[in-house]
Amino acid sequence: MIWGVLQFPGSCDERDALHACEVVGGEARLIWHGERDLGGVDAIVIPGGFSYGDYLRAGAIARFSPAMEAVAEHAAAGGPVLGICNGFQVLCEAGLLPGALLRNEELRFICKQADLVDGEGQTLSIPIKHGEGRYYAPEEMLDALEARGQVAYRYADGHNANGSVRDIAGVRNERGNVVGLMPHPEHAVDPLTGSTDGRQVFEALERLAA
């Protein structure tokens, strides 16, 4: 298993993501945003941070990078892609995932541990840290996403700190190989620094690559 972690100017959590991939298992390498070739990696992680300063709109500039063209091809071929926080925003901007991320309801950046519920009903304790994490999509699209099982993660009761519609914390594409979420599973892989529940998010991606 070879993981590729994209790096844009302004990425912040790329080293954390590399570390998380290694903890879960396999080799992990950084992929510079200017690369058009992903170098044969099995799965892609688009990490958190403030690519291009989040100027204009979060993820709006990074989506045009050569590496993102390659990611779109990788995704179209069924390759697994995980977008975390800013990476989720980039995937939505790129049209690889449905919906959009808006400024938090309280209009403040928020960093705290949150409980998520995954598709199997398991509760995961994973931190959130973002200023623009309020998931939004029109009602009809939300109904369609729910019907097709595309809601990957929801905030547990009382843990939706940003005002996301229907408590949505993460979604997947129709095919299921592209997943994005606002919480940070790469910051939940070591009991020393928090929880280990984030490993399950990476392991789910690992299974897709198999």
Binding site: D16, H19, F109, I110, C111, K129, H187, T193
Partner: peptide
Amino acid sequence: VFQQYDAIVGSRTV
């Protein structure tokens, strides 16, 4: 105050 700051990036915060 502290919730408005990223306290964990870098994976060193014990």
